[in-house]
Structure formats: C-alpha cells, structure tokens
Design a protein around this nucleic acid. Structure first.
Lengths: 244, 244
DNA sequence: GCTAACATGCTAACATGTTACAGATACAAA
DNA sequence: TTTGTATCTGTAACATGTTAGCATGTTAGC
C-alpha cells in the first residue's frame, strides 16, 4: 500500500506494556488480539511508521502467530497498518488525504442519516437524544473532556441507529478511525468543547422541527468545523505523516 | 453473526467446477483464493445457505488451508459468508434489510460525490463521461446487456474517482455487493436498460450544468429506481432469503 | 413411544514447522 | 567514489499437525 523506501526510523519505544491483556476483551483469540492491537495503535502506543514485530506481540499476548496474523490482516484492511510482503509490517503513518477521505465518508453517511430520520423520529428517540445532551451539558460544566467525547460518540451512534441500519455505525467508525487517531494529538480546548456542545444542540433542535434540510445543515456545520482543527496537524507533527 | 438454528439444507449442487482457477487472478494465494471464491459467490455458483467445504476448496484450488482461511475471513467481514465457530461456514442468504442498507450507503456516497464534483469538474473529466455514455448508447443498441452493465459500473467508478478519494469506490462496491448478487436473479429487461441509459444521460446533463443540487437529484432518481426492481425479489425467490 | 446420555464425524480455531522473498550489508570491480 | 554483485538476515506467506466445540445419530433408560 505505502512504499517505505529506506530504513524504518523509530523502533519500539520501550519494547513492552503497550498492549492491554487479552482478558480485557472478548471473542476468539484472533478477535481479542485485533482489539488489543487496534486500541494500542489508536492510542499511539505504537507510533506511526514503527515496525510491528509479530513474535514479540505473540509473546506479549501469550498466543501463537495464527490469531495475530489474522488480527494484522484485519488492521491492514482498515488501513491502520501497512504490510510489505516478505519484509515487514508497519504502523501506518497519518495521511491528510486519508483523514479528509474519512471525514468526507462520515459526513456523507451522517447527512444521509439525519435526512431520512428527521421526518420519522419517534418521541421516544427524541427523549434519548435529549437525555444524552443533558449529560453532555453536565460533563462540560465539570470539565470532564474524556466523558464528553464518549457521549459525543454515543450521540452520533444513536442517530445512525435510528435509521434502522445495523452496519452503518461500523462503516462510519471505520471511516473515522484515522481521524480518531489523529485527534490524540490535539489537546482538548475548553472553548472548542463548549462550541461542540452548541453544535450538538443545534442538531437536536433541527431534528425536533423534523425538517430534513435543517438537520442536514446543522450536521454539516458540525462536521465541517471538526475538520478545520485537523488541518494544521500535518504542519505541527510532520514526523507522524507520510512523506508526500 | 447469523444464527443458523437447525439443519443446513442444500449441499453442493454438483460438487466442483464452480471456482475459476487461481491463474485467472493475481496477487498472493490468499488474495487469489479470495477473488475466486468471491466471484463464485456473486455468480451464485455457490448458492445462499450452502455450506463451504474448506478441504474441498483447498483441493480444487490446489493450495493449503491457510490462504483459504484468510480468504474466508475476508468474505465474512464483507458479509458474504457466515462463519459459525467450530461448526461450519455458509454462504450468506440474501436479506432485504442488507440490500436496502447497501443501497442506502451507496446512495449516500454517490450523492455526496456528485455534489462536490459538480462545481469543479474539468473539461477532460466531462469528456471521459461523455465517451463512456456514447459507448453505453452503442451497447444498448446492440442489445449487449453484459457490456452495458460493465460500462454502467465504470461510469459510477469514474464519478467517484473524480472526488480524488481513493477508497471511496471500494467502500461503495462493498456496500453494493449484496445488491449485485441479488441482481443475478433479475433477467435484464430491454425496457429497463433503455431507461437506465436515459437516467445516466440525465446525470451527465446535470453535471454539465455544474449545479450540485441538480446532480444530486438526477443521481437520486437513478438509484431510487434501481431499488424498486429489487423489492419483489424476496417474494419471487424466498429460498435465497434468510427466514425472518 | 419418548427422552436423555453418549458416541461419532465434521469443522473452525489454534499451534508450529517450512519456504521464499525483500532489503541490508559487505565487498569486488570500475 | 561509485556501481554492481554476492551473501546473509529477518520476515510474511504458506503448509500442516493438533485441539475443542457443534450437530447429529444411536443407544440406554423410563
């Protein structure tokens, strides 16, 4: 996928303890290995460009190469790692193109979602959204950014689930993966969090009017603002980005 | 993923010759096995609900279980097969919900695509579209439905590629997989093909005006018509659909 | 006849041995 | 110094042996 021409700069930072134990996850060993690796990559525990040593990972997780191989092939499909045949596996570097593409895809999905659900939202569903927003309010007041991000994600997930389509959230999340990884580099700014909350409220308000176009507009405004905070990243952290 | 509770009805139909040889494909053995299986499933060479016998597949393709296992895990991720741990792998049945979801996702992507490209299309890109449409015209006149479907796919691919995003076409195709499989059950109707051509022309016409809303509308009309032909399938071919 | 314990066959999941290629290094030739 | 070639190392890709869970058929018990 990505050609790495010469030398693979940084090796492991400390050589261990970046993977949570498999007992934290559920499912087959392959699935658990996948989740453990994915979490570590998204947390930047493995740094972009770094080589993944399969034997080391096997030892750390206490499993054989088979489940780890399957985990890595799934990560490759999502674009989180680059596999160079017969040579090595490397944590994918950021790419502003991929981030923009993920944002575009997610925007397409969420705009289509609010458009279809706006006219047919039930009172029960609106209650769920209102409750979520009230909690967001409290978390912002408390300065609990981590909690706020969780509720943020939940709100978007709720909206997608109201379409009745089951895999939509998965596709949107996969698209958003690179954005989420990049977001680790941005310190949460109190002002931005308050703004985000206002944008969420505007989305709910539009949905309450049951006007598809208004809902689209509110959602577009929200997602459009997000990307503006990501654009400067390439300048600020060039070491994590793929050379152009 | 899908719970199969009781008995796995139909076995192999003729037991062989449904897989094209690996030499027809390129890449690693795992990738080639994936492509061969995928093609066979989409062609309905393997029927929905049928069990996939890994050893048989290995023998037919002349490879060991490893590449076939990876191929199957990819197919499972795309929802084309259902893996029941320690029990068996079955070709996924159709599900009208999944078909609708795929259509929704593809519509979301293509509407977003025409919306962004409409104002910025280059003359060169328009020429590509016009040329594609002229060929479609000829193929319809010749009654070459197979060729027409190929050009149809190419046109949608062109439009997505003009956004500059690389994986968009892949996501749209994956979403469309179930629809494509279901489409095998519909005989091409000359009238419908001519209609489709007109819809394609309307899309190009809208793009030529560089009006995003007109382009959205034309694309929406096109994709919306398609799904109406799929809805009767569940009634006409209940044996291929998952029980509700 | 009906139910439940058990035995059997088949499968995915996992472990591990083997192969072949990419890439680095060393060195020879120009 | 540069360039080409041989070798050597580490890795993914592949092959195959092993384990354990599910479905089913059979038999024992009632």
């Amino acid at each position: 996928m990505l050609q790495i021409q010469n030398g693979h700069p940084q090796g492991p930072v400390d050589g261990h303890a970046r993977l949570r134990p498999l007992s934290d996850f559920s499912g087959s060993l392959a699935n658990r290995s996948y989740l453990a690796l994915r979490a570590a990559i998204l947390d930047l525990g493995y740094r972009p460009g770094e080589a993944l040593r399969k034997v080391e990972i096997c030892a750390q997780l206490g499993v054989s190469r088979s489940p780890v191989a399957e985990a890595i092939s799934r990560l490759a499909a999502e674009g989180l790692v680059d596999v160079v045949p017969q040579a090595g596996t490397y944590v994918a570097r950021f790419s502003m193109d991929e981030i923009r593409e993920g944002a575009f895809l997610r925007e397409a999905i969420e705009l289509a979602a609010v458009e279809v659900i706006a006219p047919i939202l039930t009172e029960k569903q609106l209650v769920q959204l209102r409750r979520n927003l009230r909690v967001q309010d409290i978390l912002v007041a408390d300065g609990d950014f981590r909690g706020f991000y969780a509720l943020d994600g939940e709100m978007h997930e709720l909206i997608l689930s109201f379409t009745g389509f089951k895999k939509l959230a998965y596709v949107a999340d996969t698209a958003w993966l690179h954005v989420n990884r990049a977001r680790q580099l941005i310190l949460p700014m109190p002002g931005r969090v308050a703004e985000t909350l206002e944008e969420h409220k505007a989305i709910l308000a539009a949905l309450e009017t049951r006007d598809p176009d208004a809902a689209r507009q509110a959602m577009r405004a929200h997602l459009g603002r997000l990307i503006t905070f990501l654009e400067p990243l390439e300048r600020d952290h060039p070491e994590f980005f793929a050379p152009r």
